[in-house]
C-alpha cells in the first residue's frame, strides 16, 4: 500500500519553478531516497507532502488521504517529520520541546514527559535535556529534531536531509533508526539527500529531482545506469571554445579545470570529430567516473542514456 502518493506535483515561487510534474510513491516498509542537488525541489516536495506548502497543481495523498493545506488530524499523528535545517525554538530545552510536541499529539503530560525522554535517548541526547536549544550546536539540535520524529511509532517518516550536520556516530545511529522503522515496523520512509553516497546503502528506491523528475525506480537501476556512464576527457588550451562547440553539436560537455573538457556518454571518435578544425586537441582519454561523479553529471542535467 502506498503510504504517500505524489502525482504531477508542481509548485512555483513567484517566477521560479520549484518542482514540476513530480510523481512517486512511498510504500509500506520501503525506504525511498529523494535525491537532487541543492535547489532541486526536494524540500518543496516534502513541504507539499506535509501540507506545509500548497502545490500549484497535482495531488498529494498521505495514508490515502488527500492533503489540502494541512495534514488531517488523524493522519498527522502517524507521520514523523525531520526538517532540513536544524532550527528549533531557542527558548525551550529539548525535553520541553519534545514534551510539548507530544502533548500536541494528544498524549497526557505525564506520558509526554516519558515519551520525550525515550525519544531523546534514541539519539543519545538525554544529557542535553535541560539545556536551552539556543545554546546547543547545530549537530546537537539536529539530533533533537531527529528524536522528535520518533516520539511515537509512525506509519510514515518524512526526513529532509536527516544526516546533514550529524557526526559519524549519529549518522550511523540515524541510519539504524531509519532501517529499523522500515524493516522492523513496516513504516514507509522518505529520506532526502543531495548526496548519492549517503543513501546508496539505505534506500530501496530512488527519486532523482532537478525541478523535474530525472529518475524514479529501484536504487539498483540507478546504480547500474550510472555505472554504464563514461566520459571522454579532452585536453585543450581552448577549453571554453571546446565546450561551446560540443554543446552546439548536442554533446553533454563541461569544463573540468582550465584545460580539460569532460564529455559524458560519448565516444572518442565522435568527440574528436566534433572538435576537429575548431580547437587544438592536446590529448584525449576515456575515464570511468565514480558513481558519485556520474550521479552529479545526472543531476547537473547530463541525464542518463
Amino acid at each position: 500500500m502506498a503510504l504517500a502518493e505524489v502525482r504531477e506535483l508542481s509548485k512555483r515561487y513567484g517566477r521560479r519553478t520549484a518542482v514540476q510534474g513530480v510523481d512517486f510513491d512511498v510504500e509500506e516498509g520501503s525506504i525511498v531516497a529523494l535525491l537532487g542537488p541543492n535547489g532541486a525541489g526536494k524540500t518543496t516536495t516534502i513541504k507539499c507532502l506535509l501540507g506545509l506548502a500548497r502545490p500549484d497543481s497535482g495531488v498529494v495523498r498521505v495514508l490515502g488521504v488527500e492533503v489540502k493545506g494541512q495534514l488531517p488530524r488523524d493522519v498527522a499523528a502517524k507521520v514523523g517529520y525531520v526538517p532540513e535545517t536544524p532550527e528549533a525554538p531557542p527558548w525551550l530545552t529539548p525535553c520541553e520541546l519534545l514534551e510539548y510536541l507530544a502533548m500536541m499529539e494528544g498524549v497526557s503530560s505525564f506520558e509526554a514527559r516519558v515519551l520525550a525522554r525515550k525519544a531523546l535517548a534514541l539519539m543519545g541526547a538525554e544529557d542535553l535535556c535541560g539545556k536551552r536549544l539556543g545554546s546547543l550546536s547545530k549537530g546537537e539540535r539536529k539530533r533533537v529534531l531527529v528524536a522528535q520524529a520518533f516520539l511515537q511509532p509512525r506509519s510514515l517518516y518524512v526526513m529532509d536531509e536527516p544526516l546533514a550536520g550529524l557526526d559519524a556516530e549519529w549518522v550511523a545511529e540515524t541510519r539504524r533508526l531509519i532501517v529499523s522503522a522500515a524493516r522492523g515496523e513496516g513504516a514507509g520512509v522518505l529520506v532526502s539527500s543531495h548526496l548519492l553516497r549517503e543513501v546508496e546503502d539505505l534506500a530501496d528506491s530512488v527519486v532523482v529531482l532537478r525541478q523535474r523528475l530525472l529518475y524514479r525506480g529501484p536504487l539498483e537501476g540507478l546504480l547500474e545506469a550510472l555505472s554504464r556512464s563514461n566520459r571522454v576527457v579532452v585536453e585543450t588550451p581552448q577549453a571554453k571554445e571546446a565546450v561551446v562547440a560540443l554543446r552546439e553539436r548536442g554533446f553533454r560537455a563541461e569544463m573540468i579545470g582550465g584545460r580539460s573538457v569532460a564529455v559524458y556518454n560519448s565516444t572518442v571518435e565522435d568527440v574528436v570529430d566534433a572538435l576537429r578544425g575548431r580547437v587544438r586537441i592536446d590529448g584525449v582519454r576515456v575515464e570511468k567516473p565514480s558513481l558519485e561523479e556520474a550521479y552529479l553529471a545526472l543531476v547537473r542535467g547530463e541525464g542518463l542514456d
Partner: peptide
Amino acid sequence: ASDLREGGYRLIAVRPVGR
C-alpha cells in the same frame, strides 16, 4: 514570526493539533 523563523511552526503545523 519567531516560530516561522526559528522552526517551531513547521514542527507544530504537522502535528494533530494543526494550524
